[in-house]
Design a binder for these strands. Structure first.
Lengths: 341, 341
DNA sequence: CTGAAAGCGCTAACAA
DNA sequence: TTGTTAGCGCTTTCAG
């Protein structure tokens, strides 16, 4: 199975390379019959234009860089697999490859510089913008198109996000509806926009419900299961025991960690304590009963991120921001009526 | 931040492009001082050779195709995230990008054909070889280097795998040691080599322990949680109830599904029934208590797959097969002494 | 509507 | 040790 080049196809068709190139690109300037003939011959020889050569000639790489959080987080959080899947599906359909640098946040600049200097990537996808994220200024200067998974209020930046504020808000509403009044939040990693927004949703809901936001109900987590496990344990062992009857965890992994800590302390979920997570990852379903959570359309988030970047890349579109709706799933499972007085 | 080309660096250094190219590639034929000077200038201008051009000139793409199982499986099984991580880490270190086609098994040939015809990939990584896998013959003919995650007995094929037989064997041994005599296996997807090997390990162990392999103890699963859940439910509802006191599930997802079914039937794990999984995925730790399982070095499997492919690609090495050791973790958690008579 | 020719930026014989 | 000279395979003006 020898590789056949465009020059050969041209010769076989008795036309020039230029015409073949145009025909295959569906250029309207080629006479329909010629075009049909060329396509016929090309497919007969199973010919496909050489991607690398084509990219060089057009000054692009058809590759995008996917920056994911550093290894331990990525590996542990199933969120990223579903997300990655969504992004890569769309990219592949459009002929793009991807690079998974997986760098620590500190080396991001160095990584991006080298990737774009080398012409290795046409665009970059990032996750988890921080409040006043230094990467943004840097990316803008480097003139490389980029999209964030996660909103930011920096101007002229494209992003795609789930409705963090609304989701957190409705989780708290649900817990209130079930009779809970002492509702705690386990926050996400400090400094991230998503962490801040989920907190805001929580605070808004509490305020609207006429509940004071007791600082003692704000427990600091970091989006990891271990972190949530620890903080809940500490609270359980504090003087007077835990002061909440319900917990809103800022992601599913933390909800799982919280439930583990509660179980170990002999508390039942949801009979003794209610727990609601955020994300709706597949593994939430592996619990018995399946986790009550605010589900994000994870795969779709990935797809939209890809579409947004392609829009920037191929259609020269201006930046866009999208917020996708979220919804509470499995109500009544790990969140139930308040049984404690 | 304008892009600077090799020609410009050459001009600034007062040498030819060829010399710059050699210097940057650490060619020993360049005089040390010249080389040092060129490198100094290059780094001053933050210059990096243009990857696409370089690839064209060398007739390669520096991209590899990663064939993962079709979407639902991939998304649900955290095994693949860890695996992907391992592969991509190594590939990235070596300057490779990757393509995630995610095709259904039927289109594999078409996909590979077009990818290699287009010169888009230099090599391919595949998972889950089947018994008499038709892809193998095809890949050999297409002359594209490839590596499987999972062993096959087809000759001259590179693969990397965990010790399926040994792992299954030791799981059964452990259950026996705990006093179990009626040990069931939930098998994996039919037709896969890994499924067959885990069965073999089970059968060997049973035979060595002097236990008959009752066909009634072989429950057919498909590596999904849902499948295992269903088969266990069926067994529980069969006349005379379940006939086993212990279950070896061919992967962790199925162990989780089995445990869910058992719980729903009011059975406790491990007090009433023992369960051991296979893989050692991160989510096993999310259960209370963490799943007893045969742990594969998942990340390392990915790394070795990548190294093997790079060996084929860059060093023209001959094919190689590697089996990595596995080990039982969290003994005593979901597998315990036989309490039923 | 089609062809000739000039690159895209780098690598690798082959010379010197 | 370095330079010269062809390409790699495709795209794209610019003529015709």
């Amino acid at each position: 199975m020898k590789k056949i080049s465009m020059a050969e196809i041209a010769r076989k068709c008795g036309v020039s390379k230029a015409t073949v190139s145009r025909a295959l690109a569906d250029d309207p300037r080629v006479k329909p019959e010629t075009k049909a003939y060329i396509k016929e011959v090309a497919s007969r020889y199973n010919y496909r234009p050489h991607a690398v050569a084509s990219n060089l000639a057009r000054g692009r790489s058809k590759t995008i860089g996917m920056m994911l959080p550093a290894a331990p987080r990525t590996i542990a959080d199933p969120f990223f697999l579903e997300y990655l899947n969504g992004v890569s599906t769309v990219l592949f359909e459009h002929g793009y490859s991807m690079l998974l640098p997986q760098v620590s946040p500190n080396d991001v600049q160095e990584t991006i510089t080298s990737l774009s200097a080398q012409g290795r990537v046409d665009g970059v996808v990032l996750t988890e913008p921080r409040l006043d994220d230094p990467r943004i200024e840097f990316l803008k200067n480097s003139r490389i198109p980029f999209v964030f998974l996660g909103s930011t209020n920096a101007p002229d930046v494209s992003w795609v996000d789930g409705d963090n504020i609304g989701g957190a808000y409705s989780a708290v509403q649900e817990l209130y509806r079930l009779g809970h009044r002492r509702i705690a939040i386990i926050t996400g990693e400090e400094g991230l926009v998503s962490t801040a927004n989920r907190c805001r949703g929580y605070e808004h809901a509490m305020a609207d419900l006429g509940l004071a936001v007791d600082p003692d109900l704000v427990w600091h987590g970091d989006f990891t299961r271990e972190g949530a496990y620890r903080v809940v344990r500490e609270r359980l062992m504090a003087d007077g025991g835990m002061n909440a009857t319900a917990i809103f965890a800022s992601n599913d992994l933390m909800a799982i960690g919280a439930i583990q800590a509660l179980h170990e302390a002999g508390l039942r979920v949801p009979e003794d304590v209610s727990v609601i997570g955020f994300d709706g990852v597949e593994v939430g379903k592996y619990l018995t009963p399946p986790l009550t959570t605010v589900q994000q359309p994870i795969h779709e988030l990935g797809r939209q991120v890809a579409y947004t970047l392609l829009g920037l890349l191929e259609e020269g579109k201006r930046c866009r921001q999208i917020t996708l709706p979220v919804r509470l799933v499995n109500p009544g499972n790990t969140a139930g009526r308040n049984m404690r007085k």
